[in-house]
């Protein structure tokens, strides 16, 4: 109980932080659209996915408040993300070596 006293102040994210994150998301969107116009072949996919990953990290951490919530939510997220990655990797093993 006493330990929880510290987290009693529920973290309130300021309007400014959200607007900054939104500006970042819009900037990343314009980068991804611009880069897609250039023919990089398979690198283009990697670039697009990296930008999408950065965008989702911003949304999850700030908009979805994971950064400020209890660590248990991060554990949840890691477990489900890891599960998804395992499914992808195993499927591609099958697909590549069949």
């Amino acid at each position: 109980m006493d330990q929880n006293k510290h987290s009693e102040h529920h973290h309130v994210t300021g309007y400014g932080v959200y607007i900054l994150v939104w500006l970042g998301l819009i900037a990343l969107t314009s980068i991804t659209v611009t880069v897609a116009g250039i023919d990089f072949g398979m690198v283009a996919l990697a670039v697009a996915m990296t930008i999408a990953a950065i965008k989702s990290a911003l949304v999850i951490n700030i908009f979805m408040h994971i950064k400020f919530d209890q660590p248990i939510f991060k554990v949840f997220l890691l477990v489900s993300g890891f599960t998804l990655i395992v499914i992808f990797v195993l499927t591609f093993f099958d697909f590549t070596y069949r």
Binding site: T32, V33, A36, G37, D39, A44, L45, A48, M49, I51, A52, K55, S56, V59
Partner: peptide, 11 residues
């Protein structure tokens, strides 16, 4: 965020 580049941005 993922659907957009995967469907619209393949060139």
């Amino acid at each position: 965020i993922f659907l957009f580049p995967l469907f619209y941005l393949i060139h």
